[in-house]
Simulated scan of single mutants.
Amino acid sequence: MDRRGFLRTAAALPLMQSLLPGLAAAEDVYPSRNITMIVPFPAGGQADLAARPVAAALERILGKPVIVDNRAGGGGGSVGNAQAARATPDGYTLLMTLSSLAVLPEADRLFERTVAYEVSQFAPIARVLADPTLLAVPASAPWRTLKDFIDDARRRPGEIPYGSSGPYGTLHVAMEMFASSAGIRLLHVPFRGAGPALTSLLGGTVQAMAGAPGTLKPQVEDGRLRVLANWGAERIPSFPGVPTFIELGYRDVEMYIWAGLFGQRELPAPVMTRLRGAMAQAAASPEVVKTFSAVGSAVAYQDAPEFAKFMDRDSARLIAAVKRIGRVE
């Protein structure tokens, strides 16, 4: 560079420096494009039920499209979870998933498989639902009570088929937790999500299923399904006549099918702050509250710090249950 060119560049430096903060701010504005919310299950299950009204609310709050992307596969949500874990940590790929998030890596280790992802790759943003799991059977089935079901299962070990969202997914672990405690053996029929499992239950391919209140309530109200027991610590308002496993004497049978939003561990702090604020607004929005209430689920919002603590406690209990159950198909 000659002396004249150097002087021109030096003279322009103050102007360039004055523009840099504005340029940086423009680049840092989040979001500046569409956001993808991965749901690692087909439509019709608890994660999808949580994702769609929340995505619509976030779209309004953040001012950019939030696209729900159902990426089922692998069993229990492992494929979608892994894809979200590997995504660029910029806030444009989020994950709405279930309590099976912590169980699936342990199941991989149990079967000596390559672990698809680790929970440590994720950063909890907010919990939105936390429903007790319910045991549902066809309304035409002969079982009127949980005792009826257990007595029949003892007479016919391994013959009563039940559906799940995939091996070691939330619904599978719930049923095996119950079967282990009751001393019965059932026939596991895995599907790619709770939606297909529910369709199979309604069609008579399987005879039982653990499910969330929101996915089961419409079918119960239509007289197509009957609910025998509740995996929660207490009865729930949307199913007040359904006893808990605990009150029926199975004190170690307790499970919740929670749904929460996650980003990647390296998510920038300003993006995390923006998402936490947006989720607080979304969870309180009348549209989300109304949508959840219509299917018998209450908003169970927790901000990131509380959600992380809750998840640690719940995951420890579920992992212990998986180790106790051992290798089952």
Rank of each mutant, 00 (worst) to 15 (best):
R317T: 06
Q302G: 14
F6C: 15
V253D: 02
K309D: 07
P196G: 10
T244V: 12
V299D: 09
T36R: 13
S78P: 01
V206K: 10
Y250S: 04
A194H: 07
M16T: 12
S120M: 02
G260K: 07
A194K: 07
L135N: 03
D314W: 03
D252N: 00
S285L: 02
Q264M: 00
G260W: 02
L129Y: 08
P138K: 04
I61C: 11
P105H: 08
Q219A: 09
I257E: 11
Q17Y: 04
R3W: 01
F239V: 01
K309F: 03
K290D: 03
P218S: 12
V68M: 14
V39T: 11
D108W: 07
G44L: 04
N81H: 08
Q17V: 14
A47F: 08
R192P: 06
S99R: 07
Y30L: 13
P218D: 04
I257D: 09
A298E: 15
F111Y: 14
P190N: 08
A87W: 05
S100M: 11
G91S: 03
I325E: 00
G63R: 11
Q264Y: 06
L110V: 06
R156E: 12
L135P: 06
D314N: 11
G158M: 05
L186K: 11
R192Y: 07
S165N: 13
T97Q: 03
S315G: 15
L248G: 05
D314P: 03
F111P: 11
A233S: 13
P305S: 10
V115H: 12
D28Y: 01
M1D: 11
S78W: 03
K323Q: 10
A300P: 02
G169Q: 05
A141M: 02
E118R: 15
E266F: 09
V322I: 14
A233G: 13
F41Q: 13
L15W: 08
